[in-house]
Amino acid sequence: MKAVGIIVEYNPFHNGHLHHAKQARQESGADLVIAVMSGQFLQRGEPAFADKWARTQMALDAGIDLVIELPYVYATAQASDFAKGGIALLDAIGCSSFCFGSEQGEINPFLNSRHLLTEHWAEYQHLIHEAVQTGISYPKALNNAYLSLTGNRPGFADLTQPNNILGFHYLEAAQNLSSAMDPLTIQRIGANFHDSIQAGMPIASATGIREAFFKGDSIEQLSAYMPEGSIASLKKTEKEYGKFGSWEKFYPLLRFTVLREGPHRLKQYAEVTEGIENLIYQSAKTEDSFESFISLIKSKRFTRTRIQRMLTHIYTGFTWQQLRSFEGPEYIRLLGMSRTGRNYLNHKKKNTTLPLVSRAADLNNSMGKLDIHATVMYLQGMGSTNLKKEFTTPPIYWG
Rank of each mutant, 00 (worst) to 15 (best):
E9T: 06
N11K: 05
K22T: 05
Q23H: 08
G29V: 06
D31W: 12
D31V: 09
Q43S: 12
P47N: 02
P47H: 02
L60F: 08
L60V: 10
G63S: 07
I64E: 02
D65C: 11
V67L: 03
L70C: 02
Y72W: 11
V73P: 01
Y74R: 10
Y74D: 07
A77D: 12
K84E: 07
G86V: 10
L89C: 03
L90R: 04
F98N: 02
C99F: 05
G101E: 05
S102C: 02
G105S: 03
G105L: 06
P109T: 13
L116T: 01
T118E: 15
T118Q: 12
H126G: 10
H129Y: 15
E130F: 12
Q133N: 10
Q133E: 14
T134K: 01
I136Q: 01
N143E: 14
S148D: 14
T150P: 04
F156V: 12
L159Y: 14
T160R: 07
P162Y: 10
G167C: 15
A174F: 09
A180C: 13
L184H: 06
H194Q: 14
I197V: 14
A204V: 04
E211K: 07
G216L: 07
S218V: 09
S218P: 10
E228W: 12
E228M: 14
K235T: 00
K236P: 03
K236E: 07
K243C: 11
S246G: 02
K249N: 10
L259C: 15
R265N: 13
L266M: 10
K267C: 15
Y269W: 11
V272S: 09
I276M: 11
S292F: 11
K298D: 09
K298S: 10
R301F: 15
R301S: 11
Q308A: 09
M310G: 03
T316A: 08
L323T: 03
L323Q: 12
P329I: 07
L335M: 14
M337W: 07
M337C: 13
Y344F: 14
L354T: 10
V357N: 01
A360M: 00
L363E: 04
L370C: 03
H373K: 11
Q380T: 06
Q380W: 00
T385R: 13
K389Y: 02
P394Q: 03
